[in-house]
Nucleic acid binder design. Structure first.
Lengths: 192, 192
DNA sequence: AAAAAACGTTGACTTTGGTCAACGCTTTTG
DNA sequence: CAAAAGCGTTGACCAAAGTCAACGTTTTTT
């Protein structure tokens, strides 16, 4: 239990067995069936979720009610509505499961106590968010400066596992496109 | 000297005078004239820069050589090519000054020593990057789910100071648009 | 096993943003 | 102070993405 979580943690900073045991006390396992919600827009986000197994997505609804996916999370990724989690404001995103999934939850109070009691937890958190920031900045850069063909091509080389496991229209949504448009981009790419 | 820097720092976590003096030893002031580079693509980014006064921009060049602005930084903001700074890889962004500016620089070695010696510096860093992450996620969400009119309208309410101080074609670049397109969007908005 | 839902593709047409050129105005430079 | 560069706007035209409808296939549900 929590194997992947601690494997990832130790990749960022090595923990002693004692620290690991202490941290374990603050973790809650949770299973989610495909299509179940972890978070719905309007609720307050009560936890950060680490994906041990499965796949989730985070999305908002535009004014026409279309789903706009802003993040996927496969094994080893962390997902949450950070703004809602940290401020206690109501969430602006939905999070649901794309496959049956196993999560490790960290509640707000657990998060706060861990920050106080385990210095390495703060470091872990800092490194994790820094990595997420850098990745998102790259995504943003490619959105404002690359062609759709390039964006899709780098997506499939960067996230081949997502391409395998997630329906194409969701990848279109992630790219801010209509499914038909992504289909045509794929044709253009393959006919070269 | 460093007034704004410490004002912002203390907003996130309060420092004792001693801590403040200690941190000061690791800071380097730097003045930059309008149009001067702080960082050029291909160099390694050697520092994180806090803006005491002035305005900067971070951008990359697309394949046609157009500037694509991914971030502005006014007083109180921090700017850097984080990926290059942290990994030592060569930078993919340019950073230059839009106005004569005064910066506070933190070098790589200063950053690392501060993380070790001053626990609150790690907290400051974590909070700062978390805020930047949340802001960027909101920007990304609006890019993939809002109309251009909405995006520009929220930009001017969110960053009225940038609208005042930065030429319009740079705001277009920040939004991933041509200057002509932004000009037309403005006309559409004002004619309502 | 049958019915329903979800998915990806294609075609025809519309809407939107990009491109190129021109112009007037303001700011910067020499 | 004069010349040059930078800036924002507009018009005409072009290219790209969105929309709507239809279809065959696959997956899920019952």
């Amino acid at each position: 239990m929590y194997e992947l979580f601690f494997r990832e943690f130790n990749k960022k900073i090595a923990l002693t067995p004692e620290e690991q045991d202490l941290i374990k006390k603050y973790l809650t396992p949770k299973k989610l069936r495909k299509k179940q919600y972890l978070l719905q827009e309007g609720d307050v986000c009560k936890f950060v979720a680490f994906v041990e197994k499965g796949a989730l997505r985070q999305y908002s609804l535009d004014e026409s009610g279309n789903e706009r996916i802003i993040q996927f999370a496969l094994e080893g990724w962390t997902i949450s509505d950070l703004y809602s989690f940290l401020t206690g404001e109501t969430a602006t995103y939905h999070i649901d499961a794309l496959e049956d999934s196993e999560l490790v939850l960290i509640s707000k109070s657990a998060h706060e106590e861990l920050l106080q009691k385990v210095a390495k937890y703060e470091t872990y958190t800092r490194l994790k968010i820094t990595g997420a920031y850098i990745a998102m900045q790259k995504r943003l850069t490619s959105i404002i400066s690359s062609s759709l063909e390039e964006r899709y091509s780098s997506f499939i080389t960067l996230y081949p596992d997502i391409v395998q496991r997630v329906p194409q229209h969701m990848i279109a949504s992630y790219m801010g496109l209509q499914p038909e448009t992504l289909s045509r981009i794929r044709r253009r790419i393959s006919s070269r």
